[in-house]
Design a protein around this nucleic acid. Structure first.
Lengths: 145, 145
DNA sequence: CTCCATTTTATCGAATGCGATTAAATCGTG
DNA sequence: CACGATTTAATCGCATTCGATAAAATGGAG
Protein backbone atom coordinates (compact mmCIF):
# COMPACT_ATOMS: atom_id res chain seq x y z
CA UNK A 1 0.00 0.00 0.00
CA UNK A 2 1.48 3.29 -1.09
CA UNK A 3 0.69 6.54 0.64
CA UNK A 4 0.91 8.89 -2.30
CA UNK A 5 -0.23 9.13 -5.88
CA UNK A 6 2.13 7.66 -8.44
CA UNK A 7 3.55 9.71 -11.26
CA UNK A 8 3.08 8.54 -14.81
CA UNK A 9 6.64 7.26 -15.06
CA UNK A 10 6.27 5.29 -11.85
CA UNK A 11 3.29 3.28 -13.12
CA UNK A 12 4.19 -0.18 -14.35
CA UNK A 13 1.17 -0.08 -16.63
CA UNK A 14 2.53 3.05 -18.31
CA UNK A 15 5.95 1.54 -18.84
CA UNK A 16 4.19 -1.36 -20.58
CA UNK A 17 2.01 1.02 -22.58
CA UNK A 18 5.05 3.05 -23.65
CA UNK A 19 7.25 0.09 -24.50
CA UNK A 20 4.43 -1.43 -26.53
CA UNK A 21 3.95 1.90 -28.33
CA UNK A 22 7.64 2.22 -29.07
CA UNK A 23 7.72 -1.34 -30.37
CA UNK A 24 4.72 -0.66 -32.58
CA UNK A 25 6.34 2.44 -34.03
CA UNK A 26 9.42 0.42 -34.86
CA UNK A 27 7.43 -2.36 -36.51
CA UNK A 28 5.12 -0.11 -38.50
CA UNK A 29 7.53 0.98 -41.24
CA UNK A 30 9.05 -2.50 -41.46
CA UNK A 31 5.61 -4.08 -41.89
CA UNK A 32 4.34 -1.35 -44.20
CA UNK A 33 6.68 -2.66 -46.89
CA UNK A 34 4.55 -5.82 -46.86
CA UNK A 35 1.27 -3.94 -46.50
CA UNK A 36 0.85 -5.51 -43.09
CA UNK A 37 -0.40 -4.08 -39.82
CA UNK A 38 1.01 -5.29 -36.56
CA UNK A 39 -1.95 -7.49 -35.52
CA UNK A 40 -2.02 -8.95 -39.03
CA UNK A 41 1.66 -9.81 -38.64
CA UNK A 42 0.92 -11.57 -35.36
CA UNK A 43 -1.78 -13.62 -37.08
CA UNK A 44 0.74 -14.63 -39.72
CA UNK A 45 3.34 -15.58 -37.09
CA UNK A 46 0.71 -17.74 -35.40
CA UNK A 47 -0.24 -19.39 -38.70
CA UNK A 48 3.37 -19.91 -39.78
CA UNK A 49 3.81 -21.76 -36.51
CA UNK A 50 0.65 -23.81 -37.05
CA UNK A 51 -1.59 -23.44 -40.09
CA UNK A 52 -5.26 -24.27 -40.40
CA UNK A 53 -6.44 -23.00 -37.04
CA UNK A 54 -9.95 -22.10 -36.05
CA UNK A 55 -10.79 -18.45 -35.46
CA UNK A 56 -11.31 -19.19 -31.80
CA UNK A 57 -7.92 -20.88 -31.48
CA UNK A 58 -6.22 -17.88 -33.03
CA UNK A 59 -8.12 -15.79 -30.52
CA UNK A 60 -6.82 -17.90 -27.67
CA UNK A 61 -3.18 -17.43 -28.57
CA UNK A 62 -3.57 -13.76 -29.51
CA UNK A 63 -6.04 -12.99 -26.73
CA UNK A 64 -8.54 -11.54 -29.19
CA UNK A 65 -12.21 -12.28 -29.72
CA UNK A 66 -14.17 -12.75 -32.90
CA UNK A 67 -15.38 -9.15 -32.77
CA UNK A 68 -11.76 -8.11 -33.44
CA UNK A 69 -10.57 -11.11 -35.42
CA UNK A 70 -13.39 -11.45 -37.93
CA UNK A 71 -12.91 -8.07 -39.62
CA UNK A 72 -9.13 -8.38 -39.32
CA UNK A 73 -9.17 -11.80 -40.98
CA UNK A 74 -11.52 -10.55 -43.67
CA UNK A 75 -9.04 -7.83 -44.56
CA UNK A 76 -6.24 -10.39 -44.66
CA UNK A 77 -8.38 -12.59 -46.89
CA UNK A 78 -9.09 -9.63 -49.18
CA UNK A 79 -5.31 -9.05 -49.32
CA UNK A 80 -4.85 -12.65 -50.44
CA UNK A 81 -2.85 -13.74 -47.38
CA UNK A 82 -5.27 -16.28 -45.95
CA UNK A 83 -8.43 -18.20 -46.75
CA UNK A 84 -11.42 -18.53 -44.42
CA UNK A 85 -13.65 -21.57 -44.75
CA UNK A 86 -16.29 -23.19 -42.57
CA UNK A 87 -15.12 -26.41 -40.99
CA UNK A 88 -16.99 -29.25 -42.81
CA UNK A 89 -16.88 -31.34 -39.60
CA UNK A 90 -18.48 -28.54 -37.57
CA UNK A 91 -20.03 -25.72 -39.51
CA UNK A 92 -19.96 -23.47 -36.47
CA UNK A 93 -16.21 -22.99 -36.69
CA UNK A 94 -14.16 -21.27 -39.40
CA UNK A 95 -10.75 -22.60 -40.40
CA UNK A 96 -8.08 -20.07 -41.34
CA UNK A 97 -5.48 -21.26 -43.84
CA UNK A 98 -2.45 -19.54 -45.34
CA UNK A 99 -2.40 -18.94 -49.08
CA UNK A 100 0.82 -19.38 -51.05
CA UNK A 101 1.29 -15.62 -50.75
CA UNK A 102 0.83 -15.76 -46.98
CA UNK A 103 3.29 -18.62 -46.67
CA UNK A 104 5.81 -16.87 -48.89
CA UNK A 105 5.87 -13.87 -46.60
CA UNK A 106 7.48 -15.94 -43.87
CA UNK A 107 10.78 -15.93 -45.68
CA UNK A 108 10.53 -12.33 -46.85
CA UNK A 109 9.67 -11.03 -43.39
CA UNK A 110 12.25 -13.09 -41.56
CA UNK A 111 14.58 -10.14 -41.32
CA UNK A 112 12.05 -8.12 -39.33
CA UNK A 113 12.74 -9.89 -36.02
CA UNK A 114 16.42 -9.19 -36.51
CA UNK A 115 15.78 -5.50 -37.19
CA UNK A 116 13.89 -5.32 -33.91
CA UNK A 117 16.62 -7.15 -32.04
CA UNK A 118 19.19 -4.78 -33.49
CA UNK A 119 17.08 -1.79 -32.45
CA UNK A 120 16.70 -3.11 -28.92
CA UNK A 121 20.49 -3.02 -28.79
CA UNK A 122 20.82 -5.53 -25.99
CA UNK A 123 22.09 -9.08 -25.89
CA UNK A 124 19.71 -11.93 -26.51
CA UNK A 125 19.94 -13.25 -22.97
CA UNK A 126 18.86 -9.92 -21.52
CA UNK A 127 15.92 -9.63 -23.89
CA UNK A 128 14.93 -13.23 -23.26
CA UNK A 129 14.90 -12.59 -19.54
CA UNK A 130 12.75 -9.49 -19.97
CA UNK A 131 10.40 -11.50 -22.18
CA UNK A 132 10.11 -14.25 -19.58
CA UNK A 133 9.47 -11.73 -16.82
CA UNK A 134 6.69 -10.28 -18.95
CA UNK A 135 5.21 -13.72 -19.51
CA UNK A 136 5.14 -14.33 -15.78
CA UNK A 137 3.56 -10.94 -15.16
CA UNK A 138 0.93 -11.59 -17.84
CA UNK A 139 0.17 -14.94 -16.26
CA UNK A 140 -0.35 -13.39 -12.84
CA UNK A 141 -2.49 -10.58 -14.22
CA UNK A 142 -4.72 -13.06 -16.06
CA UNK A 143 -5.12 -15.17 -12.95
CA UNK A 144 -6.18 -12.11 -11.00
CA UNK A 145 -8.66 -10.96 -13.67
CA UNK B 1 21.15 -13.27 -36.11
CA UNK B 2 18.80 -16.18 -35.62
CA UNK B 3 18.60 -19.00 -38.11
CA UNK B 4 14.95 -19.91 -37.68
CA UNK B 5 11.58 -18.24 -37.44
CA UNK B 6 10.48 -17.30 -33.96
CA UNK B 7 7.27 -18.58 -32.44
CA UNK B 8 4.73 -16.13 -31.14
CA UNK B 9 5.72 -16.76 -27.53
CA UNK B 10 9.38 -16.19 -28.32
CA UNK B 11 8.80 -12.69 -29.69
CA UNK B 12 9.58 -9.94 -27.21
CA UNK B 13 7.07 -7.72 -29.00
CA UNK B 14 4.33 -10.25 -28.37
CA UNK B 15 5.18 -10.54 -24.68
CA UNK B 16 4.82 -6.75 -24.50
CA UNK B 17 1.58 -6.84 -26.49
CA UNK B 18 0.17 -9.57 -24.23
CA UNK B 19 1.25 -7.98 -20.96
CA UNK B 20 -0.19 -4.66 -22.07
CA UNK B 21 -3.44 -6.41 -23.04
CA UNK B 22 -3.64 -8.22 -19.73
CA UNK B 23 -3.01 -4.97 -17.88
CA UNK B 24 -5.71 -3.25 -19.88
CA UNK B 25 -8.20 -5.97 -19.09
CA UNK B 26 -7.44 -5.59 -15.41
CA UNK B 27 -7.82 -1.81 -15.52
CA UNK B 28 -10.99 -1.77 -17.58
CA UNK B 29 -13.49 -2.83 -14.91
CA UNK B 30 -11.74 -0.69 -12.28
CA UNK B 31 -11.89 2.37 -14.51
CA UNK B 32 -15.41 1.65 -15.74
CA UNK B 33 -16.70 2.52 -12.28
CA UNK B 34 -15.49 6.06 -12.96
CA UNK B 35 -16.62 6.04 -16.60
CA UNK B 36 -12.99 6.27 -17.64
CA UNK B 37 -11.09 4.58 -20.43
CA UNK B 38 -7.46 3.69 -19.96
CA UNK B 39 -5.97 6.52 -22.07
CA UNK B 40 -8.29 8.96 -20.32
CA UNK B 41 -6.95 7.70 -17.00
CA UNK B 42 -3.39 8.28 -18.20
CA UNK B 43 -4.30 11.86 -19.13
CA UNK B 44 -5.67 12.37 -15.63
CA UNK B 45 -2.54 10.93 -14.02
CA UNK B 46 -0.47 13.33 -16.11
CA UNK B 47 -2.66 16.29 -15.11
CA UNK B 48 -2.75 15.31 -11.43
CA UNK B 49 1.02 15.41 -11.59
CA UNK B 50 1.04 18.80 -13.34
CA UNK B 51 -2.11 20.67 -14.27
CA UNK B 52 -2.57 23.24 -17.01
CA UNK B 53 -0.49 21.62 -19.71
CA UNK B 54 -0.65 22.28 -23.42
CA UNK B 55 -2.03 19.54 -25.66
CA UNK B 56 1.39 19.11 -27.19
CA UNK B 57 3.05 18.68 -23.78
CA UNK B 58 0.54 16.00 -22.84
CA UNK B 59 1.37 14.39 -26.16
CA UNK B 60 5.06 14.40 -25.31
CA UNK B 61 4.64 12.55 -22.03
CA UNK B 62 1.99 10.16 -23.37
CA UNK B 63 3.63 9.78 -26.79
CA UNK B 64 0.41 10.72 -28.56
CA UNK B 65 -0.28 13.30 -31.24
CA UNK B 66 -3.13 15.74 -31.59
CA UNK B 67 -4.95 13.41 -33.97
CA UNK B 68 -5.41 11.08 -31.01
CA UNK B 69 -5.49 13.58 -28.16
CA UNK B 70 -7.96 16.10 -29.56
CA UNK B 71 -10.98 13.78 -29.75
CA UNK B 72 -9.95 12.07 -26.50
CA UNK B 73 -9.74 15.41 -24.67
CA UNK B 74 -13.04 16.54 -26.17
CA UNK B 75 -14.73 13.47 -24.71
CA UNK B 76 -13.12 14.18 -21.35
CA UNK B 77 -14.32 17.76 -21.56
CA UNK B 78 -17.82 16.57 -22.40
CA UNK B 79 -17.62 14.32 -19.35
CA UNK B 80 -16.77 17.36 -17.21
CA UNK B 81 -13.30 16.15 -16.23
CA UNK B 82 -11.22 18.85 -17.90
CA UNK B 83 -11.48 22.22 -19.62
CA UNK B 84 -9.81 23.11 -22.92
CA UNK B 85 -9.00 26.75 -23.61
CA UNK B 86 -6.79 28.53 -26.08
CA UNK B 87 -3.67 29.99 -24.51
CA UNK B 88 -4.17 33.81 -24.46
CA UNK B 89 -0.38 34.28 -24.82
CA UNK B 90 -0.29 32.07 -27.91
CA UNK B 91 -3.58 31.26 -29.53
CA UNK B 92 -2.05 28.34 -31.38
CA UNK B 93 -1.83 26.24 -28.23
CA UNK B 94 -4.63 24.84 -26.09
CA UNK B 95 -4.27 24.59 -22.32
CA UNK B 96 -5.88 21.60 -20.61
CA UNK B 97 -7.02 22.17 -17.04
CA UNK B 98 -8.66 19.86 -14.53
CA UNK B 99 -12.15 20.68 -13.33
CA UNK B 100 -13.11 20.15 -9.68
CA UNK B 101 -14.59 16.84 -10.76
CA UNK B 102 -11.37 15.84 -12.48
CA UNK B 103 -9.31 16.80 -9.44
CA UNK B 104 -11.65 14.96 -7.10
CA UNK B 105 -11.13 11.71 -9.01
CA UNK B 106 -7.51 11.61 -7.86
CA UNK B 107 -8.57 10.62 -4.37
CA UNK B 108 -11.35 8.29 -5.48
CA UNK B 109 -9.15 6.46 -7.95
CA UNK B 110 -6.14 6.18 -5.65
CA UNK B 111 -7.00 2.59 -4.82
CA UNK B 112 -6.68 1.52 -8.45
CA UNK B 113 -2.87 1.39 -8.40
CA UNK B 114 -3.05 -0.78 -5.34
CA UNK B 115 -5.54 -3.15 -6.97
CA UNK B 116 -3.10 -3.55 -9.85
CA UNK B 117 -0.17 -4.11 -7.54
CA UNK B 118 -2.16 -6.73 -5.67
CA UNK B 119 -3.06 -8.44 -8.93
CA UNK B 120 0.54 -8.47 -10.08
CA UNK B 121 1.24 -10.44 -6.92
CA UNK B 122 4.94 -9.62 -6.74
CA UNK B 123 6.94 -7.46 -4.41
CA UNK B 124 7.42 -3.81 -5.20
CA UNK B 125 11.13 -4.15 -5.83
CA UNK B 126 10.57 -6.79 -8.48
CA UNK B 127 7.91 -4.73 -10.24
CA UNK B 128 10.06 -1.61 -10.03
CA UNK B 129 12.92 -3.45 -11.65
CA UNK B 130 10.70 -4.71 -14.46
CA UNK B 131 9.41 -1.17 -14.92
CA UNK B 132 12.93 0.23 -15.14
CA UNK B 133 13.95 -2.45 -17.63
CA UNK B 134 10.97 -1.49 -19.76
CA UNK B 135 11.93 2.18 -19.57
CA UNK B 136 15.43 1.36 -20.77
CA UNK B 137 14.05 -0.80 -23.59
CA UNK B 138 11.64 1.97 -24.62
CA UNK B 139 14.51 4.44 -24.65
CA UNK B 140 16.59 2.23 -26.91
CA UNK B 141 13.68 1.54 -29.24
CA UNK B 142 12.97 5.26 -29.58
CA UNK B 143 16.58 6.01 -30.32
CA UNK B 144 16.59 3.38 -33.05
CA UNK B 145 13.36 4.63 -34.59
C1' DC C 1 4.73 45.95 -43.05
C1' DT C 2 4.64 41.65 -46.07
C1' DC C 3 5.10 37.17 -46.99
C1' DC C 4 6.74 32.75 -46.20
C1' DA C 5 8.25 29.22 -42.89
C1' DT C 6 7.20 27.23 -38.55
C1' DT C 7 4.36 25.84 -34.77
C1' DT C 8 0.24 24.00 -32.93
C1' DT C 9 -4.07 21.96 -33.01
C1' DA C 10 -7.84 19.96 -35.61
C1' DT C 11 -9.92 16.92 -39.19
C1' DC C 12 -10.41 12.74 -41.97
C1' DG C 13 -10.11 7.89 -43.17
C1' DA C 14 -8.66 3.34 -42.00
C1' DA C 15 -7.52 -0.31 -38.59
C1' DT C 16 -7.63 -2.24 -34.16
C1' DG C 17 -10.00 -3.52 -29.70
C1' DC C 18 -13.92 -4.37 -26.73
C1' DG C 19 -18.84 -4.89 -24.61
C1' DA C 20 -23.18 -6.39 -25.99
C1' DT C 21 -25.97 -8.79 -28.94
C1' DT C 22 -27.33 -11.90 -32.74
C1' DA C 23 -27.38 -16.00 -35.72
C1' DA C 24 -26.30 -20.49 -36.96
C1' DA C 25 -24.85 -25.08 -35.85
C1' DT C 26 -24.28 -28.66 -32.55
C1' DC C 27 -25.11 -31.17 -28.33
C1' DG C 28 -27.74 -33.30 -24.71
C1' DT C 29 -31.70 -34.73 -22.30
C1' DG C 30 -36.02 -36.40 -22.30
C1' DC D 1 -37.19 -37.15 -32.69
C1' DA D 2 -37.87 -32.46 -30.14
C1' DC D 3 -36.26 -28.65 -27.98
C1' DG D 4 -33.65 -25.93 -25.03
C1' DA D 5 -28.63 -25.09 -23.72
C1' DT D 6 -24.15 -24.42 -25.48
C1' DT D 7 -20.63 -23.27 -28.76
C1' DT D 8 -18.81 -20.43 -32.42
C1' DA D 9 -18.62 -16.52 -35.54
C1' DA D 10 -20.39 -12.45 -36.96
C1' DT D 11 -22.38 -7.78 -36.32
C1' DC D 12 -22.89 -3.21 -34.17
C1' DG D 13 -21.47 0.90 -31.72
C1' DC D 14 -17.94 3.35 -29.45
C1' DA D 15 -13.14 4.64 -28.23
C1' DT D 16 -8.53 4.75 -29.31
C1' DT D 17 -4.35 5.02 -32.64
C1' DC D 18 -2.02 6.51 -36.65
C1' DG D 19 -0.77 8.64 -41.37
C1' DA D 20 -1.88 12.41 -44.10
C1' DT D 21 -3.58 16.77 -44.49
C1' DA D 22 -5.61 21.29 -43.31
C1' DA D 23 -6.20 25.56 -40.75
C1' DA D 24 -4.99 29.12 -37.71
C1' DA D 25 -1.54 31.76 -35.25
C1' DT D 26 3.10 33.19 -34.69
C1' DG D 27 7.77 34.38 -36.04
C1' DG D 28 11.36 36.09 -39.01
C1' DA D 29 13.67 37.89 -43.13
C1' DG D 30 13.66 41.55 -46.17
Amino acid sequence: MLDRALTLDELLCFSLYSANHAMGRLYRPLLARFDLTYPQYLVLVALWQQDGRKVGDLGTVLQLESNTLTPLLKRMEAAGLIRRARNPQDERSVIVTLTDKGRALEGEAAEISNCILAAADADLAELAELRDRLHRLTERLREAG
